[in-house]
Amino acid sequence: MSRLKKNYERSFFYRFKKWVEGEYDPFDGKLEIKNTNRVKKELANHTQNPMEVFYQEEEEEIEHATEEGLKWYQKIYKIVSVVICLSIISVLLITVSYLPKIGNPDNPDNNEVSKRYIEKGLEETGATNIVSGMILDYRAFDTFGESNVLFIAACCVLILLRYDFGGKDSANLKKINAEANDRIYEPKNDVILQRVAFVLVPMIIIFGIYVILNGHLSPGGGFSGGAIIGAGLILYLNAFGFKKTERFFSQKTFKWTVFSSLTFYCLAKSYSFYTGANHMESGIPLGTAGNILSSGLILPLNICVGLVVACTMYAFYVMFRKGGF
């Protein structure tokens, strides 16, 4: 087995075998003879600056030492990390064994907060889906922060992966190279993919719109619906290429859609919170629970969140693939 090792010749067993067979001199290369090498080298490179030679050798020695150190470090690191992981798992398991049983209605996490959300949620927000009413009405600014997190992540990916920095020639050349490179990987006129996408993309996008519009009535909402629409857009892009998607989705579309969605979200929710905090009439009708046009601001906010998520998903894909729209 050990013969398969890369560094077999430096292993202890190999050296021991050599020593038993009498081929190995334990003092070989470890006495003053070693210095002759350096003298020889200096003689050979006498045209070079001797200090340079010395530095070179020193560097080589340091490299050798760091490689040895790395090997030891990796061995110790692996052992220590496994020990740390096992201890963390065991501590967590002991904690879990002291937690109250799952599914028990008397658990301390089923306190007055969830009681209030369930008993007053429909009356106060008008949404049948209590989770939707919670995240888009009681904790709407939290969801606003989430949409901003998505937008900022898209901006950071754009900064990190963008090709055309606005420079003159070299950046343009890079962009052209990237597009040419992308053409190689792009399946041009793949008939099966195009036929399937022709049937599937409208259905996927309509299903996404349904999930967004029914966010306050049934499971779903802006985040899941937006992810579905984004997946449909990515499928369309894969089947038909960048030229066709650029007709309706460019960087400008992304910018303005996300910007206007986030602004509308911020203004609408600020208005609602302002009037609510000052005990004024907000003038936003709650409607009858169960209709599509009901529950006040939740439907438009869901649409805003869905647009942001769909645009961000598509932007992530485009950025990772080509580095620009």
Partner: peptide
Amino acid sequence: IEGRLAPIVVNNVTDMEVYINP
């Protein structure tokens, strides 16, 4: 919570004993 429904109001029943923790 065992035996309870997802927190989506059905038939205007807003009782804490029916739904799980949202």
